[in-house]
Every structure is written in structure tokens, then in C-alpha cells.
Design a protein around this nucleic acid. Structure first.
Length: 221
DNA sequence: GCGACAG
DNA sequence: ATCTTGTCGC
């Protein structure tokens, strides 16, 4: 699985928005995955007062969830954090980390939204379309949309809606703990996404993939 | 105009 | 995201 080189990465919000509008139609919302033997989590951390980005990738076997490989990539921070344009800040460093993996994951869990985005093209969608690989958006907080409060037990969820449109799900991965915002990234249906997130988060609120990636990215241990 | 706003 | 110690609860 070759990871594309990035040419002409946008610097301005206007170009970024144009790319989102031009690529949003390429998002696939139905299941198109192979047998999932590996799952990866990717996340970022920052150093030097934000001037340096530290990307991490953690590859796990599935469904065993054994940590197989990790990768860390240092990258200059190239785009500011602007709500709605997170992927333009995170994708380049993430690709650099993924290139270091020996095995390309069958599924990637992203730390952020997928379709639950103003223009339906959040980080998980962007990464998925760019790599043409299955991705799921797993965010720790709401960006857009409305929803009811999911039941307090693990596994209960509510639809995340924007007007008449379903854009994701609010999923409780641990009883009585703040739920996660799950949305389609690419090539994984919402129902399938929910089951994978649950399967990847057997003991904690966050999936094992993002927990480890997060830890690596923030330089902890 | 005012408030909200993934990481 | 990051700055940061102790502290409340199971």
C-alpha cells in the first residue's frame, strides 16, 4: 500500500475549503473492507510552543488488540488549528508516521470527526480518501450536530444529527462515562464503525489504538 | 451582531 | 492541543 507524496498542500483556508468541496463526494459510506487483521490509531502532539508537530501511529492486531508496531514522526507545524480545517494540519504528519509502519493497517481510527463536519469532510474522511483505505472518526467531543443522551451502559448510543441528516453516533464505551462521537471516515458504514470502536475499546473510554497513539504523540510512556 | 467551535 | 498538583470517587 503506497502512501502518496503530498504536492501543493494548501496554506490558506480558501484553498482548503475548495479541496473539501472538491473531495467530499469521494467519501464512501458503505462497507468496503477486507478481513480486518490490523487496526491503527493515529494522533498528534505538539512541541516547541506549537512550532513542531509530533505524529504517532500505533498498529494493533485485530481482534486480539496486541500492540504490533509503533511509529513517531516529527514535522514542522504547517497549518494553524482552525475548526473545520483540522485535517490540513494533521494529515501530512500522520502520513509521515504511517510510512514508517511495516504493515499497512486494514483500518485506521482517527482522533477527530469524519462525516460529522460542516462540509462532511472531517479528518477521518480526508485521510481515508487520500489513502483510499477504511477509516473511522472517533472524537472526544462534539463538533456539530444534535443528539439525545445515550443510555448509561456501555454500548448504548444515539444518532448524531444535523437537520434531517444523520452524520454520526454518540457512543458510550464505558458505563456512566462521557460518550464518544463516532462518524464515518471512509469505506466503513456507521453501524460497522460503532462495532469496531466498541471492539477496540474493551476497557477504557478511548479505543486502545488512540490511547497508545496519544501517549506516543505527547511523548509520555 | 452573538455564540459555538474536532485537536 | 498545551499549561499543571492535588484530589475526589470507585
Amino acid at each position: 500500500m503506497p502512501i502518496p507524496e503530498l504536492l501543493d498542500w494548501p496554506t490558506e483556508v480558501t484553498e482548503a475549503r475548495a479541496i473539501q468541496d472538491r473531495w467530499r463526494d469521494r467519501v464512501e459510506v458503505c462497507d468496503r473492507l477486507h478481513l480486518v487483521n490490523s487496526v491503527a490509531g493515529v494522533d498528534l502532539g505538539f512541541e516547541n510552543e506549537g512550532r513542531t508537530t509530533r505524529a504517532a501511529a500505533a498498529l494493533f492486531s485485530y481482534p486480539d488488540l496486541e500492540l504490533m508496531e509503533t511509529a513517531i514522526a516529527i514535522y514542522p507545524t504547517i497549518f494553524p488549528y482552525i475548526p473545520g480545517y483540522l485535517s490540513f494540519r494533521e494529515v501530512p504528519p500522520i502520513l509521515k508516521a504511517l510510512r514508517q509502519l511495516t504493515v499497512f493497517p486494514d483500518l485506521i481510527l482517527c482522533d477527530g470527526q469524519g462525516l460529522a463536519h460542516p462540509r462532511r469532510f472531517g479528518l477521518a474522511c480526508h485521510l481515508g480518501v487520500l489513502l483510499d483505505c477504511p477509516t473511522i472518526g472517533v472524537a472526544k467531543s462534539r463538533f456539530i450536530g444534535t443528539h439525545g443522551e445515550p443510555g448509561r451502559k456501555r454500548g448504548s448510543w444515539e444518532l448524531l444529527t444535523d437537520g434531517e441528516e444523520t452524520i454520526g453516533a454518540v457512543l458510550r464505551t464505558r458505563a456512566k462515562v462521557k460518550p464518544l462521537y463516532v462518524s464515518i471516515g471512509h469505506r466503513v458504514s456507521l453501524e460497522t464503525a460503532i462495532s469496531y470502536v466498541l471492539a477496540c475499546a474493551p476497557n477504557y473510554r478511548l479505543p486502545e489504538t488512540t490511547r497508545i497513539a496519544d501517549r506516543l504523540a505527547s511523548n509520555r510512556t
